[in-house]
């Protein structure tokens, strides 16, 4: 167990190192970063001076080393546009994004898990049919379109919720619904097939044959085992939601990291873009690490399977 945790930790560090290479590469993809900092009519001499000042004349690996050494300490430099440390900007906006993501994921779970389980229990019923149509639509509707539709119907048409901004609890309803819909569909589908699989297991049949009440068999025996695979996809789902938040926040003018990122990309604010990508990736890695560890606790067989690889 300890060996597994240690190996998993090391692996996460490796992933973060890889992320840092890509984040570093982002800036250099633009060619010469000094061109972004100086006005177009800057003299050749000034450009050269700035290059030297920023250390851009050093070999790439030296620059990378310097970048990494600073990034580890949370220093991604000043945002070109706002002239404050990039990380500070992120920490200002991160709570809004986490709130939205949590609301989206929470909504998805609250709706999808019961829906998936019920449609597995009442297979081929009307409810099951409705759920599977819902799943198909949910997986086919892009978040930006669903967002626009929600605005058209519930903000412009009915006036129940605000169309944009983050002001009071009503403002989170539409963005969270738009963001959570895709996950909702996926989770409902997983919950349904997971439950069906478990219900077909021998131990469920044995329990039933032994005369244990159906209610107990379903909710105590089957549900617990069906929940295990759901735990892992929540980690992956969280990553998808963080990505989806970029678009959702743009549509609903939600003041989170996603909107900050879009704004940073369009204003060529590369230190900020780098910092955001790094922070979101780190968040993803940490959450998945935690979930993996929880998972091994729930289902101890996993450790052996994975180390056998």
């Amino acid at each position: 167990m300890v060996g597994y945790v240690g190996r998993r930790l090391l692996q996460s560090l490796g992933v973060l190192l890889g992320v840092s290479v890509i984040v570093f590469g982002l800036l250099h993809l633009t060619g010469d970063p000094t061109r972004l900092l100086l006005p177009l009519e800057a003299r050749e001499e000034d450009v050269r001076q700035l290059r030297a000042l920023l250390g851009l004349d050093d070999p790439l690996w030296v620059q990378y080393g310097r970048f990494l050494a600073r990034a580890v300490r949370g220093d991604f430099g000043l945002s070109f546009k706002h002239q404050v440390p990039a990380l500070a900007l992120i920490f200002q906006t991160l709570p809004a994004t986490l709130q939205l993501t949590a609301a989206g994921l929470g909504l998805a779970l609250v709706v999808a898990v019961p829906a998936g389980i019920l449609s597995a229990l009442k297979r081929n019923s009307l409810l099951d049919a409705l759920c599977s149509v819902g799943v198909l639509l949910g997986q086919a509707m892009p978040v930006y379109w669903l967002g626009l539709l929600l605005i058209m119907v519930f903000a412009v048409g009915l006036g129940w919720f605000p169309a944009a901004g983050r002001d009071g609890w009503t403002s989170i309803v539409l963005p969270a619904t738009a963001l959570g819909a895709f996950s909702m569909a996926r989770i409902a589908r997983m919950a349904r097939s997971g439950m069906l699989e478990v219900l077909a297991q021998d131990y469920v049949r044995t329990a039933r044959a032994a005369g244990i009440r159906t209610f107990v068999v379903t909710y105590k025996y089957a549900l617990k085992n069906a929940a295990i695979p759901l735990v892992t996809i929540i980690g992956l789902e969280f990553g998808i939601l963080l990505g989806g938040a970029v678009i959702t926040e743009t549509i609903f003018a939600w003041p989170g990291v996603g909107r900050l990122a879009v704004d940073a990309i369009f204003s060529r604010d590369y230190p900020l873009v780098q910092a955001i990508v790094a922070v979101l990736a780190t968040l993803f890695v940490v959450i998945n690490l935690v979930i993996d560890l929880v998972y091994t606790y729930l289902d101890p067989r996993i450790v052996y399977v994975r180390s056998a690889r």
Partner: peptide, 13 residues
């Protein structure tokens, strides 16, 4: 690594 990075941000950048 590619799973960890929000691909939409990477793509946009």
């Amino acid at each position: 690594v590619f799973l960890a990075i929000p691909y939409i941000l990477l793509a946009m950048g």
